[in-house]
């Protein structure tokens, strides 16, 4: 039911986002770094887009590593870039 739907993870800083990207990859959750959608924050940095199906698992991975999450948002594919393109 969640195919094509995304969750965006906002972290406090780019360096946090890069660390989170690494942790998610290690946990076999594919992350994609995208610009922070303007309607979520005016930060000029990056955030992480994951499949909505991975939302809970990703949250757990980051929390277990002691990372503070600024926000988790379920967003529509339109706001999250073309599906399927991975960095």
């Amino acid at each position: 039911m969640t195919a094509g739907k995304y969750t965006v993870i906002l972290l406090y800083a780019t360096s946090h986002a890069i660390r989170a990207e690494k942790l998610l990859k290690q946990a076999s959750i594919p992350p994609k770094m995208i610009p922070v959608p303007r309607h979520l924050s005016s930060s000029c940095g990056v955030c992480i887009r994951i499949a909505r199906a991975d939302r809970e698992a990703a949250q757990q991975v980051l929390q277990q590593a002691g990372m503070e999450i600024e926000g988790l948002y379920d967003i529509s594919p339109r706001a999250a870039g073309k599906p399927g393109r991975q960095a």
Partner: peptide, 11 residues
Amino acid sequence: NPGRAAHRRAV
């Protein structure tokens, strides 16, 4: 530039 844009090379 790191941590500013979100394009592939910035990341």
